[in-house]
Simulated assay, not measured.
Amino acid sequence: MAEIAPTELLELFQRAQASFTDRVDAIEPGQWEDEALPEWTVADLVAHLVTEMLWVPPLVAGEPYAEGRFPDATTDLLGDDPMVGWESAADGALSSFAEDDALERTVHLERGPTPATQYILELISDLTVHSWDLARAIDADTELDGELVTASLLIGEALPDDGVPGYYEPPLDSSPSASPQQRLLARFGRRPL
């Protein structure tokens, strides 16, 4: 896998968060219960990423993954103002990764010890692909930042041919002439528009 400098990873992470924030900000009040993914509403998708961001501070601080650390209920995670819940969790995650030597550490994920640089790259790809999912669900702009797509492809192209059960759908075939964004979406089991 290609190396990306820690300062660039941090900047890409911030841009991926901003991209998702723009889509959350575009959600109309009546769209929260719309389908974003099979069996997930728009609210569920946003809550998923709130949870992802809430995990960053304890993991970067060296705590091991612990099932049940955060609420499962979407309403508990999003509260009365989902944008505030999202931004608070995103700010905490960014602050944790911005600490001195944070990207030189090892985090202890459910699957085991993982370099923090790998972890942040996985979060960048998750934020990027879910930005597309959310944009598609709320009929917003589905065009993704090209540099985020390129970074996310490092994760997407390393996915096994059968996906990762419980995390990623099996990749779909894409044409050799597909754009990087189309290839990324196909690698994460999405059929581009």
Score class of each variant (00 low, 15 high):
Ala2Ile: 11
Glu3Thr: 14
Glu8Lys: 12
Leu9Met: 08
Leu10Phe: 04
Glu11Pro: 00
Arg15Cys: 02
Ala16His: 05
Ser19Met: 09
Phe20Cys: 02
Thr21Asn: 13
Asp22Arg: 15
Asp22Met: 11
Asp25Arg: 14
Asp25Gly: 12
Ala26Asp: 07
Gly30Lys: 07
Gln31Ser: 08
Glu33His: 04
Glu33Trp: 00
Ala36His: 04
Pro38Tyr: 08
Ala43Asn: 05
Leu45Asn: 01
Ala47Tyr: 03
Leu49His: 14
Leu49Ala: 05
Leu49Pro: 02
Thr51Gly: 12
Thr51Met: 09
Glu52Gln: 13
Leu54Cys: 10
Leu54Ile: 06
Val56Asn: 07
Pro58Ala: 10
Leu59Asp: 05
Gly68Gln: 13
Ala73Gly: 08
Thr75Asp: 15
Asp76Asn: 07
Leu77Glu: 10
Gly79Tyr: 00
Gly79Cys: 05
Met83Asn: 08
Val84Glu: 14
Trp86Thr: 01
Ser88Phe: 03
Ser88Leu: 08
Gly92Thr: 13
Leu94Cys: 06
Ser95Ile: 07
Ser95Leu: 11
Phe97Ala: 04
Leu103Asn: 06
Leu103Glu: 06
Gly112Ile: 02
Pro113Arg: 09
Thr114Val: 05
Ile120Lys: 10
Glu122Asp: 13
Leu123Cys: 06
Ser125Val: 02
Leu127Glu: 11
Thr128Trp: 00
Val129Glu: 01
His130Leu: 04
Ser131Gly: 07
Trp132Leu: 10
Trp132Tyr: 10
Asp133Pro: 05
